[in-house]
């Protein structure tokens, strides 16, 4: 039995990610890669449009990842979390790289984010 709090893999909730790059820059193995662009968003009542980052791509290379959890701990927006999912083997090294879709699939539905 794998416990629900097991550190099987790292999951992403892309809607919470602000593309702040903290996880990318703090990762000791450089296994996270993030692509984003800025957009102007006009909000009702606001004088000027707001500039926001829009996440285009978020990849974790689980071939390199040492599962230290620094990214999970540091994410200010709880966009990253531990997940007990573990079956991510692949037949090629490139197959260990996961994008937004795969990372979101591992998001633990019952577990609260483990960030501070």
């Amino acid at each position: 039995m794998i416990p629900a709090e097991a550190h099987g893999t790292i999951a992403l909730r892309a809607s919470a990610c602000t593309s702040c790059m903290i996880c990318v820059r703090e990762c000791p193995t450089w296994c996270i890669d993030l692509v984003s662009h800025t957009e102007q968003v006009s909000e009702a009542g606001a004088r000027r449009p707001k500039t926001v980052n829009v996440l285009d791509a978020f990849r974790i290379d689980f071939g390199l990842c040492m599962y230290c959890g620094i990214c999970v701990d540091l994410c200010p927006f709880d966009a990253l979390a531990w997940s007990p999912e573990h079956d991510h083997g692949a037949t090629t090294a490139a197959g260990l790289v996961q994008g937004i879709k795969e990372l979101e699939m591992a998001w633990p539905p019952t577990q609260p984010p483990t960030g501070n």
């Binding site: 593309s19 790059m21 990318v24 820059r25 990762c27 450089w30 996270i32 890669d33 993030l34 692509v35 984003s36 662009h37 800025t38 957009e39 102007q40 980052n53």
Partner: peptide, 13 residues
């Protein structure tokens, strides 16, 4: 010699 992913920045629209 490896590109550091942390150097990437948001592109503008």
């Amino acid at each position: 010699i490896r590109d550091w992913p942390g150097a990437a920045q948001s592109t503008d629209d």
